[in-house]
Amino acid sequence: MLKYESIRSLTEAAEAKGVKISELVLADQAESMEMSEQELYDRMADSFRVMQESVKEGQKKDQRSTSGLTGGEGWHMNQYAEATNGGLCGPFMTRAIARALAVAGCNASMGRIVAAPTAGSCGILPGCLISLFEDRGFSEHDIVMSMFTAGAFGMVIAANASIAGAQGGCQAECGSASGMAAAALVEVMGGTPTQCGDACAIAIVNQLGLVCDPVAGLVEIPCIKRNVSGLMIAFSSADLALAGIAPKIPVDECIDAMRDVGNVLPAALKETAGGGLAATPTGLKLQEQVFG
């Protein structure tokens, strides 16, 4: 049985056996959950379909959040991507950005989403994976399998640091999601297990210290846009790892650093809406607008 105590133990076990991390994880989880591999795979495939539906829902022109503070971001980004043939980042990335916005927007409007690892960071993994599936032609099987790698990395992060904004700030939510997504991207692209760990490390490092400061305490501002930065960092980290540019600090030490940074973050910057953007004059005005 795998222990999910370190990323290194996962990557080394996969390298030693010459298999993908996801294959190890699927077999292990089937054993510990006393279910067949096929049952677990089907359940994950269902989650992938929910993610695709979230994208569709969140890309509607009239998508509005329950509070009324946000809405339509996914639709706007798609319009821009089409009108400009991909804007600055190119068609692939602008479409990926639109997907992350759409899923985060779907969440804000009480739509159905898959927490990955949380509701606040739910746009990053689907934004990355659905883009590989729809725009790069990777098989659904490879994509769904990579979600087991992402999940396993999240388990290690949850065990050694945190995936809750209230405990570790936004680095724990969007940072973790980005690290998980980066690992999954590398696996789908045919990278080695070690490169999966490298990509995760780089993504976490790039969001270290990110605070959780939601305006009015709602999962909207800045959460929706931070799903975009998390997605961009996941892609760039995966590319760095695949290019062979390894992180200088090993992934497990990066996760420990994230925990230590989270521990010294003041409570005002951990989902209490007491600091950061939430405490700005405009943030307070928006709060007043929603709750009176």
Binding site: Y4, V25, Q29, S32, M33, L40, R43, M44, D46, S47, V50, S65, T66, C106, N107, A108, S109, M110, G111, R112, I113, V114, A115, A116, P117, A119, C122, L125, M147, F148, A150, G151, A152, G154, M155, A158, A159, I163, M180, L218, V219, E220
Partner: peptide, 14 residues
């Protein structure tokens, strides 16, 4: 904890 505690739950937001 299992892998579906991380990739999941499927839920209505936010």
């Amino acid at each position: 904890m299992n892998v579906f505690d991380i990739i999941g739950p499927v839920m209505i937001g936010p």
